[in-house]
Design a protein around this nucleic acid. Structure first.
Lengths: 197, 197
DNA sequence: GTCTATAAGTCGATAGAC
DNA sequence: GTCTATCGACTTATAGAC
């Protein structure tokens, strides 16, 4: 089976993600994106409806991917601590697969808007809330079943998610590392801790 | 002693930090800042030279504060593990004191520019590199002296700094927490780990 | 599907009256 | 030190020729 050519639209989304990552959504002009595509900015509009639609087309599929992943894992027959480790591993994989897209998740979502087609801001925030709720549920189960210490759940979950949110930044500068080493090391640090016992 | 009136310039920097936090530097216009000050945008220029100067006046003092803090701690006679804990506590304090300003550190520094007066981008990045170098030095000493496990230093330090970088975001939504509880809990999680032993 | 031309608005910043 | 007025550049997006 021959791989289908990358559509022009997909190319635009990829170039845009790189530019948004580098300078942010607001500081990136439609002309900048066109230049990367070696087109005039007017030509872009044959493939996309607006600059806003580009941002939505990058961010929302990633947000859906995260939520789908955590739901599948938390509905699986794994033990709670295994689920927690899998959820962390899943986030690491999503990040490595699409650094530029994922890099927009922590901050650039604020530029999502409600458009005629969809309320992208609400859609994103709903998915994010669902994800955090699911994450905390699994985390609490790990405590209840005696896998983890009785820590403050809000603080501990925030701390783990912070590391995962910033992974894109670290990974862009350290791409040579073996992803499986990264996965193992990170899970050990985040859950096991650093202190010598 | 009577507290000196807040200068008009300081007010501008505070309002600007809030807006930059909310929408980012690029998406915030000089007119937006003026509106918060209940002035016309032209009037702002009696207090500041340019929009860029505002960003520099917010970010660079914070960057200097971080670096000064870590250097004082790492030159103190504390043990390496005590230094590490103090460094983390210092970051938490800086964040709580100035959430809006600190919120710009992770991402908005990319909009710093070289101006006639100073090369703000270079200045910032030099300070950041110095900070990370110092942090890793202390961390390595903790391993060498047997306080911490022999983990991958780059990954572990990135992970800790990620949590501290994102603290502003979590704290803005959880300001009711006792800062000392936050400090203790976070240091325990980051260094001690979550696993039940 | 790409182009040129351009609309309609916003941007940061300045000049000069008061 | 604040205002009105305005400059010139840049913004997203559209119209219409090819």
């Amino acid at each position: 089976m021959v791989k289908k050519d990358k559509s022009r639209r997909t190319e635009i989304l990829e170039k845009a993600a790189i530019l948004f990552h580098k300078k942010g959504y607001s500081a990136t002009s439609v002309r900048n994106i066109a230049q990367e595509m070696k087109m005039e900015s007017a030509s872009l509009y044959n493939h996309i409806k607006s600059k806003q639609e580009i941002l939505q087309a990058i961010l929302l599929p990633i947000a859906h991917r995260y939520t789908k992943g955590i739901q599948e894992i938390s509905n699986s027959p794994l033990t709670s601590i295994q689920q927690l480790e899998r959820i962390i591993a899943d986030q690491i994989r999503i990040t490595i697969e699409n650094i530029d897209g994922v890099s927009l998740i922590p901050n650039e979502w604020v530029h999502l808007e409600k458009t005629k087609e969809r309320d992208a801001l609400k859609e994103f925030l709903d998915l994010r809330n669902l994800y955090e709720k699911e994450f905390k549920k699994v985390f609490k189960k790990c405590i209840k079943e005696g896998y983890l210490r009785k820590v403050n759940v809000d603080i501990a979950v925030f701390s783990i998610l912070s590391t995962l949110r910033w992974l894109y930044s670290w990974y862009s500068k350290n791409q040579k590392i073996n992803p499986l080493v990264l996965e193992t090391e990170l899970i050990n640090n985040l859950i096991g801790g650093l202190k010598k016992t």
